[in-house]
Write a protein that binds this DNA or RNA. Sequence first.
DNA 1: TCTGGGGTCCTAGGACCC
DNA 2: TCTGGGGTCCTAGGACCC
Length: 397
Amino acid sequence: MSKRRRVIFHIDVNSAFLSWTAVQLMQGGHQDIRLVPSVVSGDPNDRRSIITAASIPAKKLGIKTAEPVSMALRKCPNLVVVQGDWEWYRRCSEGFIEICRKYSPVLQQFSIDECFIDMTLRNWGEDPVDVALRLKNEVKTTLGFTVNVGIGSNKLLAKMASEFEKPDKVHTLWDEEVQEKMWPLEVRELLWVGKKTEEKLQMYGIHTIGELAQRSVGSLTRLVGKKFAEQLHENANGRDESPVETEVPEAKSISAERTFSNDIGTEKEIDRALFNLACVVAHRMRRADFHTSCVSVFIKHKDFSVVQKQHQMSQPTNITAVILNEARAILRDIWDGKSPIRQIGLGVSKLTHENTFQMSLFEDPKMDYYREWDRKFDEEKAQNEDARMLAYERKRQ
DNA sequence: TCTGGGGTCCTAGGACCC
DNA sequence: TCTGGGGTCCTAGGACCC
């Protein structure tokens, strides 16, 4: 029985945060920052701020995503640096996904600015490339930003294809094109091959995806472990059976972290940070109706070394005070109380929806007070969000 | 004036049980 | 004086993604 060849599109917004910011600024009459060296960052006044997106002219000057803003400014003193607006990005993303969904309901959102759609069942009366061109142009004319569309017989090939020349392009990477279009690429270009894996492969004489494709799984296993070796071998050969997942998976963990502008070392400051993180994480848990039974804390020192510790609790909870208490105990274990800390993080995992809250005879009588405190916190947060939304709408009119 | 923030998955060792 | 083997859970750490 011959299987119908799948047709998968991967749609990727070009320099998403930068494009979206450009659209936003142009609505206010600003020049198009996509045409000049520009970047989007977190708080540009924070000395530890890094770049989250760079324009193509900026990239041509050697400016890369994730590098410190201060470093980029040294490379290009007249670089335009703008702060990202998450609320706006969320809206742009929604608009983008909505258009893609019109082309196929079998859609998997891969990140805020990327999705896969399965076009296999479409009644093809035309070249897939023409359909992709139409999609790309529809996004551009209705939303004002450009995308790349990659087309292939599976998700991997579609994704690799969308990485080819940018911006505003459609590329195919069919099975029969793998040798010509994918094999000559550096191994680092392959999905899931990061810096560390690249180093290992290079030591082994593997520099291109084609060279990787021709190694045996056995020899790769010694380098990267069985599971990863199998995957690398499949992917380098252009194979990927994974389906386009339309279900949005439930979160498995929730975390928040904070990097200090200056490394800090007093217990009071650290504790205040931990408190804020606990508030944020617990609030997000309650909003998604989660309870956790595993809390973890990590600290990053001046030298970037990280110490992390987690602890399981006997009863799932979503009470801020309980989580904070747990986090404090962990922190006492991993921090000497004085060495400077660069970053601190708090996470919860083992999330469940079950409310196994039992009235225990031994329950801390303060629990009612804690719950009430959380309820007020959540209420206030919701009000603030409403107010901000309203102000946002007014500003846009 | 060096290096954010939020996730996922995998591996390896130790504890513990049968 | 010896010291199997399988399974599961927990924990820490590492790699990758955007």
